[in-house]
Design a protein around this nucleic acid. Structure first.
Lengths: 344, 344
DNA sequence: ATGAAAGCGCTAACAG
DNA sequence: CTGTTAGCGCTTTCAT
């Protein structure tokens, strides 16, 4: 209850070192020159008392919280951990704490923000499921100019948000082109992500573009739900099979869906890659452990986290800075599910 | 930089409502009775100004941070997300913020704590890789009695930590017994987790106990590294096969290892479950999507997070409370990798 | 180079 | 039921 009662304060340190609190603060923050001798005495007092500045007091006095907020969706799998790691490391390195909040899946209306300008200096938003208007609400509820960086999502017009997004179109294009030109596939099915999901839409565009470039027609019948879920994908592919659809390859908008597709194909005794070639997107943890190992488009997940923090801190320190969108490159990782013999 | 400058303060609200700041504070915190009329005026002023109390000031005045710290290891996969979700939800519900820190894998020495009594009211520690002595250090560095709850780990003697752990022994026992009594397996290999990992050790004990109970001898040759990793497990099982070891079942200390085992067995054209039956532990996300679906021991992961928060908050509110260890039950989930025909 | 003192925005006695 | 007034622990002018 009385969390700090038994704790040394800056006054205790000052007393012990025989200086004023101002001086202690100065050596703690290297905010002004202090004679070597005094500094040493202060340091010693700090160590002896095991003094650690209290965040609340410091934040109040500094008028900033030195804390970044991270808003995450409730759904999600292994996908998140690398991002989280990237974000935490970058934040810590820059001297920021990381406060996290998870957006309940059911509740469409955003809560009176648990995270916001009242307790963070800026916000990282994994906006996967948020609509355009929810994003805007988010921006309006905060003080004008409150720094917000979107992950995997282009900001609404004039929102002032920065963002870091993936090179989805090109990545998808590469994968599909590989299926067509190297492995001679002609009828390729697309397992899409959730409707309205930006990454999925863009991957689909890359898919269509590759077909077009190589003179293949786009068949809407061969676009089915994947929903970033193993189960949904498996069901969709089974459905496709049952309907008697013919296809010689599947491009999945994500590796989870690819995994589901694989399950369904195996269940139907269809050989991958001989009868149906398969490619995914993300290069998630599991990709190389599928059987056959999955050819997929690598998304630099941890780096995305780091870059997002970099952008956020930049706009915290320099609020005059223009919003910026970082586009992170992706590239095809060839394993065996496409028909190639090399790599694993 | 000047994060709060354009922000309404409690004084602004008070002025607008024509009351004192004390009154505003009272209606905000329901900390004393306020006449309906005044309360309404205050509420309106709050809304009009979009006032949100500043966490730092509030925390300082209250002498507590209303924040829980969560210390996570750097390694980890989908395993973490359910826990994180459980923890975040429980914390939020109880009015606490959640601050996270990730322990770098390389650095064995703990950093001057990013999380601690200077900015949290208590700590949740996922101590997977921490040694006994590191745990003690953690406790000593904090003010005596600073609430700490361990996840998946029994606290050191007299540490004063609480903990929530899994019923590993019994869970493992059940799984192995099932393999033996229902499917008549006699030579069962064990894919263990990291050496020194408590969960893994206990699962191994359950494994041995089940063998003993059913009159089967324990063969150290059949205990190999799994390391909570798909890759390591796959390699270990391949090795076992290459060495000509004979076994008719594998019990893996975790589902990732089970998945790796499956990969290796398939690669060797060994049929699961006909030739080798397989069981895992955790009932992780992927378990039901493996082919065949994995029989495994369910660990109530999200619930573990919630329970840990409950324990932590209890000792924050009542520091006289005794440290407590919650043992969470596990139970066998039967799918097909063991040889059963039902469920998926 | 150092100290005195005024806050930061809020809560919590204490009066009335 | 409401207002006045000390702080909470730290940073930061402003003097010296």
């Amino acid at each position: 209850m009385y969390a700090q009662h038994s704790h040394a304060t800056i006054a205790d340190v000052a007393a012990r070192a025989g200086v004023s609190t101002a001086t202690v603060s100065r050596v703690l923050n290297r905010t002004a020159a202090v004679s070597a001798g005094t500094a040493a005495r202060v340091q010693q007092a700090v160590t002896e008392l095991g003094f650690v500045p209290q965040a609340a007091a410091r934040n109040l006095a500094r008028r900033k919280s030195s804390t970044l907020g991270l808003l995450l969706p409730a759904v999600g799998t292994d996908f998140f951990y690398p991002i989280l790691r990237g974000i935490e490391a970058a934040a810590r390195q820059a001297g920021f704490d990381l406060l996290i909040g998870i957006q309940p899946a059911q509740r469409r209306r955003l809560e009176p923000a648990p995270l916001g300008d009242h307790n963070t200096d800026g916000l990282l938003v994994f906006a996967g499921e948020l609509t355009e208007s929810e994003l805007k609400t988010l921006g309006e509820r905060a003080r004008p100019g409150f720094p917000i960086v979107l992950l995997y999502r282009t900001p609404p017009q004039d929102s002032g948000f920065s963002a870091v997004v993936l090179e989805n179109r090109n990545g998808a294009y590469q994968a599909v082109e590989h299926l067509v030109t190297v492995h001679g596939r002609q009828k390729i099915a697309f397992l899409r992500g959730p409707l309205g999901n930006q990454d999925s839409e863009q991957r689909m565009e890359g898919f269509r573009q590759a077909l077009a470039t190589h003179g293949l027609s786009f068949d809407p019948q061969l676009v089915v739900a994947g929903n970033y879920s193993v189960a949904v994908a498996a069901q969709s592919v089974s459905g496709l099979l049952k309907d008697g659809a013919t296809f010689d390859a599947i491009f999945a908008a994500d590796d989870d869906s690819a995994s589901g597709a694989l399950t369904a194909l195996k269940a139907a005794a269809i050989h991958v890659p001989e009868q149906v070639a398969l490619a995914g997107f993300d290069d998630s943890f599991m990709a190389s452990y599928l059987d056959p190992p999955l050819t997929t488009v690598r998304a630099p997940t941890e780096q995305l986290g780091r870059e997002a923090v970099r952008l956020l801190i930049r706009s915290i320190h320099d609020r005059a800075s223009e919003p910026q969108i970082t586009l992170l490159p992706t590239h095809l990782v060839i394993r065996r599910s496409c028909g190639c013999e090399n790599g694993r």
